[in-house]
Design a protein around this nucleic acid. Structure first.
Lengths: 150, 150
DNA sequence: TATTGTTATACTCTATAACTATA
DNA sequence: TATAGTTATAGAGTATAACAATA
């Protein structure tokens, strides 16, 4: 029984703490599984994003992954060194790189994704579908209440 | 409307994505507020932990914060350089350091905490108490389903 | 021998600013 | 001028291993 009845903290704080706690656990578990395949969460995110929108510019990619254009360089460098993605010059605008998943990257994503889904189902499967819908609705309202830009 | 009705992903995955999304936003907002006071989330966590359990060993502190004993050194170094915490040798065991919050650290924690609580209430206040209780219960079950050790 | 803390090393991610080459 | 990408720099967190002092 992790929470005592006379816990004096307001519900808002208790929920926030629980949420941060759970997210830390989830992320750790996901990262640990990904590490077995030699990639990080950030790189897996990039891979998934590219599998859906191959050939985007670095700028676009940075925006989708919510990192700066300076930091996407290193992410692409590392994933590129691992042979997962590659830069191709845009023929129409010589300032632009188009980022593509390599066959190896696609293969790795396909190999890794089932494990991630399995993990998610293993954990979230403890809730009924009705509860998952509830949780999803509540999270949607929290997301709306928490814009990224301050 | 962020989620379409014909979204083909299973509810488990949708909830996981929403949860990771929201947590990223929340953490960013919290970190941003803390940055105004010159501290990071990790340092705030350490400060809070020490405010409740002053004088713990580095080993203990590392375990509570879920970092290794090697990495707690750097955390304490940085917070120590900022004058927030200090090492005091244990008189009975000359191997151990006892970590204490300085008056400045306690003062900073007191100054920072209201802002964090306010932020949490601003966001979670969009839910009713009944909904917060629901959410808390669901998170509790997810936490139980997601042990830290693999 | 075991434990506490330290150092060393290396990698990932983040944030900012200045720079280049194109447009 | 504005934009796409790069480089440089700095800080923060993480992980592992080897080490010194002490128990």
């Amino acid at each position: 029984m992790p929470i005592l009845n006379d816990d004096p903290r307001p519900w808002e704080v208790k929920v926030a703490v629980a949420l941060l706690d759970f997210q830390g656990r989830l992320e750790r578990r996901m990262a640990s599984r990904l590490a077995e395949h030699g990639i990080t969460l950030a790189q897996f995110d990039m891979l998934l994003t590219l599998c859906h929108g191959d050939g985007v510019t670095q700028q676009d990619l940075a925006e989708r992954l919510l990192v700066t254009k300076a930091n996407i360089v290193g992410l692409i460098d590392r994933a590129g060194a691992a042979g997962l993605v590659e830069r191709r010059p845009d023929p129409e605008d010589r300032r632009v790189n188009r980022i593509h998943v390599t066959p190896a990257g696609r293969k790795l994503a396909g190999k890794v994704r089932p494990g991630q889904d399995e993990l998610i189902r293993e954990i979230f499967g403890h809730l009924s579908e009705a509860e998952l819908r509830q949780l999803h609705a509540l999270l949607g309202r929290l997301i709306a209440a928490c814009p990224r830009d301050e």
